[in-house]
Design a protein around this nucleic acid. Structure first.
Length: 296
DNA sequence: GAAGGGCCTTTGAG
DNA sequence: ACTCAAAGGCCCT
């Protein structure tokens, strides 16, 4: 099936898919290829919206899958205006990368992705997830391109730590195996967490071995609709230190409280902009924008 | 209960 | 070949 999904808000599909939220989308032949749920999708940005090709049989289903994934229901233009208001850093980040959006991903794949992410790097995380999908997931073919569904928690639990070790996950294998088991046995109901408050959902995720504040916040922001989460990694810490005068030694919890006080439900988007902007600036300090330029 | 340090596996970049 | 950093977390003081 092939149709045009109108998009009226700012959207930069390429930047969004490459911004370290999701790790299995690939760009080839002018299309972005990936799997949503059971079906394969190819997306291409056009002037009036997104050209969508998919193995999904129902157009309505495909429209909901794509617009849900891209969070097209958020009032992104308004959000950007609010963030840029009185904040030179965010204003600059939004100007440089208009249309960098948050995604609403499949919770299980998202949690698995960020369990794999610890002390890793984006190319390697992608490699790990591809290996898992190809070894344990079901194939989907769209326009002659073979892709793989991400395997269910049951399937990953079945492969276990040993199976994941063989795929190159290293010390993360035991954590992912344990998480898969918890989900497979119903001890952790990820979809139910979408309806739960932030604190409750986070506490449930922190109950998993190998899931700490950072990984939990990633799953919460990128898949569970908890936009007050604020994943704090090395790059965001640098951004807070250099641009907002936050001590580099601040605890995760204190930084989270600080960000939530300042940005509330917009924390998730702010974090994504700070991460992306600071990471692409490279290792040099204070390039391009003055330190302390943001309003207190 | 908070805070600091060692350790865990491997890959990619310089 | 060597070093460092990488979307961290656990466990022990």
């Amino acid at each position: 099936m092939d149709f045009l999904l109108p998009v009226l808000q700012p959207l930069d599909l390429r930047t969004t898919l490459a911004s370290g939220q999701t790790f299995r989308w690939e760009e080839a032949d002018g299309w972005h290829w990936g799997v949503l749920g059971m079906h394969g999708y190819a997306l291409r940005q056009e002037e009036d919206g997104l050209r969508v090709r998919t193995t999904a049989p129902e157009r309505t289903e495909a429209e909901e899958a794509v617009s849900g994934f891209l969070r097209l229901d958020d009032d992104f233009a308004l959000l950007c205006r609010e963030l840029a208001q009185g904040d030179l850093i965010l204003g600059e980040a939004i100007t440089r990368y208009p249309g960098l959006r948050l995604l609403r991903q499949e919770p299980w794949e998202c949690l698995a992705s960020f369990i794999c992410s610890q002390v890793s790097n984006i190319p390697r995380i992608s490699g790990n997830l591809r290996a898992i999908a190809e070894a344990q997931g079901e194939p989907v073919t769209l326009d002659g391109r073979k892709m793989w569904q991400f395997p269910s928690a049951e399937r990953v639990a079945e492969a276990g730590e040993a199976g994941l070790l063989r795929l190159g996950l290293g010390f993360r294998a035991k954590y992912l195996a344990a998480a898969a088991q918890a989900v497979a046995e119903g001890r952790l109901d990820l979809m139910a967490l979408r309806a739960a408050p932030y604190a409750e959902a986070k506490a449930a995720l922190l109950g998993l071995k190998g899931v700490g504040d950072k990984v939990a916040d990633c799953a919460l922001v990128f898949s569970l609709d908890k936009l007050e989460g604020f994943p704090l990694d090395r790059w965001v810490r640098r951004a807070l230190e250099e641009w907002y005068g936050v001590s580099s030694k601040i605890s995760y919890r204190d930084a989270l409280a600080w960000a939530q006080e300042r940005w509330g439900q917009r924390c998730g988007y702010v974090q994504q902009y700070l991460f992306h902007y600071r990471r692409l600036l490279g290792r040099e300090v204070g390039v391009g924008v003055g330190v302390g330029a943001a309003k207190v």
